[in-house]
Nucleic acid binder design. Structure first.
Lengths: 142, 142
DNA sequence: ATCAAACGACTAAATTTGTAGTCAATCGAT
DNA sequence: ATCGATTGACTACAAATTTAGTCGTTTGAT
């Protein structure tokens, strides 16, 4: 016998749920009707409208979205910020790092990203702040 | 009716699978017997030996591990590098980024990591190389 | 007022994941 | 040679995920 419970660590979204959440987050200031989401996911994912609607309902159940009744339909709004979910996903990636991989993975992400000069500068500042305070190879010290 | 196939984008590991893979990767040079893995996961996860063995078998089925028969048991070895899987996981994190989040997420990861000075230096070099080549706010240019 | 379109609730089914039991074969110690 | 421990193969089964259908109700156009 086997009880099963998962939820990908804690607040985890499934891949399909991410796709829906991304649409809602993008439209976070007006909020989304189900239709706004499924017209898009129909194009991008080829999903039937009902598929998207099912996922929306589950996201509400799980507390990732709020649904306010408006007319005959609902207005869906994110319950939390995209950033919070992304940071949580980043944390669970970090949790899987092995010895010596972290730097390489962060490097890889940096390479694949188009950061603005401002973002790069901030990152560089952070690196400067941290250099010398860690885990040094510690050969020669005055 | 509904066919379902998932696999978390492509090569994705489930959370339980990551836990097993991490043990095998850590012992990648000797290889692991099932027992090596389940003594550890029993401690760290509280799993029954059979649970771990099931996951090992599934990982072989999915091609993430190879199993070479040795005596009465098998020697499990990673079919791919940990780094490769981590980079794939990083890519699917990147795929979920929204406008303006990437820098913050990378910053967050950097903050949470203990990189060596060497790694920090490499990262800094990369940042320097990239600064000025992107997405500039583009106000003043000589 | 009528009626088609659309909505959300409910239902459904294949698959995957998590978790573990059973069991025949085998290895190792006696 | 015998027998207990261990192994991997197979089985089990609940919960979660993906994907979508049905249907009563509401709405908007006529």
């Amino acid at each position: 016998m086997a009880p099963a419970r998962n939820e990908s660590e804690e607040n985890g979204l499934t891949p399909a749920e991410w796709k829906v959440m991304k649409v809602v987050w993008r439209n976070r200031y007006h909020g989304c009707a189900a239709r706004d989401v499924y017209t898009e996911t129909a194009k991008t994912e080829g999903w039937a409208p009902t598929t998207t609607k099912s996922i929306l309902r589950r996201l509400v159940d799980k507390g990732h979205l709020t649904a306010r009744p408006v007319g005959n339909s609902h207005l869906y709004e994110p319950a939390g910020s995209a950033l919070k979910s992304l940071l949580a996903a980043a944390d669970s990636l970090l949790a899987n790092m092995l010895e010596g991989t972290t730097g390489l993975v962060i490097t890889h992400m940096l390479e694949k990203s188009r950061l603005t000069d401002d973002e790069l500068a901030r990152l560089r500042q952070l690196i400067d702040d941290r250099t010398g305070k860690t885990n040094v190879t510690d050969k020669n010290r005055p």
